[in-house]
Nucleic acid binder design. Structure first.
Ligand code: ZN
Ligand code: ZN
Ligand code: ZN
Ligand code: ZN
Lengths: 129, 129
DNA sequence: TTAAGATTGTTATAATATAACACTATGTAA
DNA sequence: TTACATAGTGTTATATTATAACAATCTTAA
């Protein structure tokens, strides 16, 4: 368990209480009142938070979400579901899936140390509309 | 089988013969001699080529690769392996994997219509170094 | 023919991310 | 306690990736 620096903590708190993934410049806008004024300050904190697994980047959206999967292989094994209408993003925590992917080997003899999976579709709410 | 427009064909040809994923502005630079001068011309062709499944976007790299998996579910079901040293990217074509993912259902009752999976690791060459 | 839809060309601008440099805080080990 | 390494901060400038808006042209099918 890592102690976060001031900027890291401010930015993690914001992401962690957000119901939706946040983009870097949205974060910047929201922490300016706390003294974080420049993009680099945000990106540096984001990099570190991703590295230690407190947050994940949703690559297809250039946005960041807090890890709600305390036992997960942090930055090394991530899976998300993304609603293409309301943009709701949920981290998938599924033993079968993570085992399957962790053990997956392709024919090229590549050794995988990390993966990221993004599912797209319609969430329960948007499906019925 | 769709016929490509002029710009789409020029840009597809470039990507298709490239041994590595290409970024949009690299593409722009390389097709300027063919009369494509503006980023939008490139992005519009890329959007269409992705939509019809002739190319895929490698989200974690903001780069584009030709689909070498003629029977694949095109834009709807993609998987790649990415070497973190040499950045070699390979499209994974594996029936077990695609079946597993196509049938995957999470507990939220979300209906998936698409997925993208990126594995990271070391390719055979980089592993021995 | 003609109208709809797709594609193109162009300029400007938005959104995302990093380089470079100087400085400060923190922990660790002689 | 000092001094060294490592991590974090603040700042300005700039690079990279992507889209808005508008007018013109091409393609295709009723
Ligand atoms: Zn997680
Ligand atoms: Zn939804
Ligand atoms: Zn493909
Ligand atoms: Zn490699």
């Amino acid at each position: 368990m890592q102690t976060l620096s001031k900027n890291q903590q401010i930015i993690f708190d914001l992401i962690n209480k957000s119901p939706e993934p946040l983009k870097a410049y949205t974060i910047l806008y929201n922490v300016q009142k706390k003294g974080i004024k420049a993009p680099l300050q945000v990106y540096r904190a984001l990099d570190k938070l991703v590295e230690i697994g407190k947050i994940h980047k949703i690559e297809s959206r250039n946005a960041f979400i807090a890890c709600h999967n305390s036992s997960c292989q942090v930055a090394k094994a991530t899976a998300f579901s993304i609603c293409e209408i309301c943009e709701k993003v949920t981290e998938i925590s599924n033993d079968s899936l993570s085992k399957y992917l962790a053990n997956f080997k392709d024919k090229d003899g590549m050794k995988y140390i990390k993966y990221n999976l993004e599912f797209f579709g319609l969430c329960k709410k948007c499906k019925v509309k």
